[in-house]
Design a protein around this nucleic acid. Structure first.
Lengths: 136, 136
DNA sequence: ATCCTACGATGGACAGAATCCAAGTCAAGA
DNA sequence: TCTTGACTTGGATTCTGTCCATCGTAGGAT
């Protein structure tokens, strides 16, 4: 989890000032920012960075498997930099904030083969929904 | 599960020709249509139906608990008419088709209270992803 | 059967999220 | 330092969905 920049450089990701700033924003707090929030934070350091660039960089980081896209209902997608620790999400149905959670059990084992319809199932995503303390 | 129209009438849902057509579209195949697809199918029978009307009707059906909103990937939401049988979804990561599945186990029980962060957790949504037979 | 009226439908404007594109810029290898 | 292909830019565009003022009508009342 520690040095995203390091890993990206090792993987031959062409490093520009814009990409560096985006990666640094993600490498900071483990909150789940929207693309626009990433853009806003990046713009504090690099005022002229364009939205398109942020979208491009985020899309590439997702393809590289370094961050995960979390799409909550209809709202803007959020980007989760914690891609190297498997976890699930707990979403507030009112304000949309997301927390990482670590449920016990193995949901993959809960899907019997007769319920797989010939699919090669490779991942499971579990989303818990409810009201956070401040919205309750 | 069978007669959506019947139930809606019993529940006092004011029946207009537009609402009838929307309900009939949903009551048909158990595929998961987007709002736009519902609109397109409804328009085959009632050419002048407006998109706003379809959105309104879908929103009400969701509030009534008669259909479920499924947002798979940040693309358009899909509407699942199979709301009376609790189930989860199996999505093909390549072509996007969705199948209803019925896993065993109870994922809600898998989230210990120290992992709930004061949220009042009310629902769990499990999405299995993989390749369907034709995409594999 | 007809009338009333509150509720629903309409469609065009609007808004938020994300993508596209042509032109300009720059990282990094030679 | 030079070169070049990859990256960035920002405005236009697409896609999804909502809003609103106005018009129409379902269904109860008469």
């Amino acid at each position: 989890m520690s040095d995203l920049l390091e890993r990206l450089r090792e993987r031959g990701w062409r490093m520009t000032s814009q990409r560096r700033v985006v990666a640094e924003v993600l490498n900071g707090d483990h909150v789940h920012l929207t693309a626009d929030e990433v853009h806003a934070r990046a713009a504090q350091r690099l005022p002229e960075i364009s939205r398109a660039t942020v979208y491009n960089a985020l899309g590439e980081l997702v393809s590289l498997g370094e961050v995960t896209e979390v799409s909550t209902d209809g709202r803007a997608k959020r980007y989760d930099p914690n891609a190297h620790h498997p976890h699930q999400h707990l979403v507030c149905s009112h304000c949309g904030t997301i927390r990482d959670v670590h449920p016990t059990g193995n949901p993959l084992a809960d899907l019997p083969s007769e319920e797989r319809f010939g699919f090669s199932v490779s991942e499971v995503e579990v989303t818990y929904r409810g009201l956070c303390p401040s919205c309750a």
